[in-house]
Design a protein around this nucleic acid. Sequence first.
RNA 1: GGGCCGUUAGCUCAGUUGGCAGAGCAGCGGACUUUUAAUCCGCGAGUCGUCCGUUCGAGCCGGACACGGCCCA
Length: 509
Amino acid sequence: MAQQELDLLHPAAPPRRYSEQQRVRLAKIAVLQADGRTPYPVSVPRDRRISDVRDQCADAHLWPDVPLSLAGRVQAVRDLGGVIFAVIEEQGHEIQVMLTLAETPAPLRMLWRQSVDLGDIVSVTGCITRSRRGELSLLVSDWRMASKCLRPMPSRRSGLADPDARVRHRYLDMLVNPDSVAMLRHRSAMVHALRQRLISTEYLEIETPMLQALHGGAAARPFKTRSNAYRTELFLRIAPELYLKRLCVGGLTKVFELNRNFRNEGADSTHNPEFTSLEVYEAYGDYQSMRRLAQDLILAAACAVHGRPISMHRDPDGELHEFDLTAPWPVISVHDAVACAVGRPVTVSSTSDELTAICRDNGVHCGPSASAGEMVLALYESLVEKQTVAPTFYIDFPIDACPLTRPHRTDSRLAERWDLVASGFEIGTAYSELIDPVDQRERLTSQSLKAAAGDPEALQLDEDFLTALEYGMPPTGGLGLGVDRVLMLLTGAGIRDTIAFPFVRPVSP
RNA sequence: GGGCCGUUAGCUCAGUUGGCAGAGCAGCGGACUUUUAAUCCGCGAGUCGUCCGUUCGAGCCGGACACGGCCCA
């Protein structure tokens, strides 16, 4: 009885099943321990980076004839009996190491043979030399295990090809596919360049709430969560827009946020449930000035990634082609673009009946209650975006679908908004912001009616935001760029390659 | 939601008409004093995604499901 209780309270872990290769590697830990060594030491000798040695010895020079210590992951071992060659790698830089009869004490050579596997991280100490074939090499006089690898590495020749495994085990992808590490570097360079471009022109970076009691600033389904302390439902933000505008009311004239948004939708080649956006607001700007800023930011990002203003575009055959971003980016009205796509005249004056027929003829589905503007938008989204390869600004959207955008200065049926589209997907959007609190209240009220009618993407009415507007927000241009999307544009990659850890379905227990 | 493709050793992949489960790399044992995709000899390694069906016999044929990828909506 007492034993049963104990068993229940302290259930034994089920025995782990190890593959043959895992068992072999575990056994090698015992070999190290029998020699008084630990497979996971707190520190190991390392006084240079592998790249330092490579750089200094690039032109046939050798390091001064004094021992130094390097550390890296074992990528290859060639044991010729009298001499053992191995390749260790650190941060993408490799160097050969040699264990020889003459220079390496016999017990250390033996221990290497008995305990080192591909994938182990080792520290090696010795002098830099060249092999008979001229390969820069460290002649090992001493070595330590820095971290024993207990699982067999994917084959270096084949890499890791399974797309699911590549994102689930990104560390493995990084270890065998250099492109994956390069992408992370590109991303870091790009994000830095975007911040640099803004901060150097006196924009202020502010972090606004990600946990919000009301979700707003975009049309999308939110993730819901709950505050225990305040016993209230909260949302992960779908956009930072309404908080950044409060900052504009508060007197900041140039402000931006580069951070994560969350949308409770599926994942595909251009969508991840959490994604990074850049939103910029500038007082006394408008959607025209934001257009110049957007192009500027993307050119800065391109130079950070590629060293010059180009993007990479993948054609239908999978071939990558360079694309010159300095050529002027077309600016086309949404109605003209739709008209061109359907081969019939479409203008802001087109009637609902005409548009219903055009939608039907082009296989575009709209709800029966869709307004003319919503139909134009549906046509635009299904017929224009995917066909757009070169960066193109589509401007002056029907006002129906733009609840946060001010009416066009010359035609109130249009909104002063553009979308930037390239490589078949939307990269960013910008508005001349709606600052009229009376108009804004009406628009959000009609959105909340939609929400009440069951539209899960409708905006919520944020009373505090409206109150802020009533204190007066200066005429303002606002810009949003999808940061992941910009990197996709620049590299020709899918969104899952541009994010270090894209969403993957959790493994079922 | 629909269509197509995929799931076999740690990785990358073959697997014929339904007849003992295969290769390369990786692993294990051995040889080898300058290799660099080292080479040579020998050996081991599998819940063929899951379940059901057809069959004397299923990795292969049929059905359902799961997961992944691509395309379409």
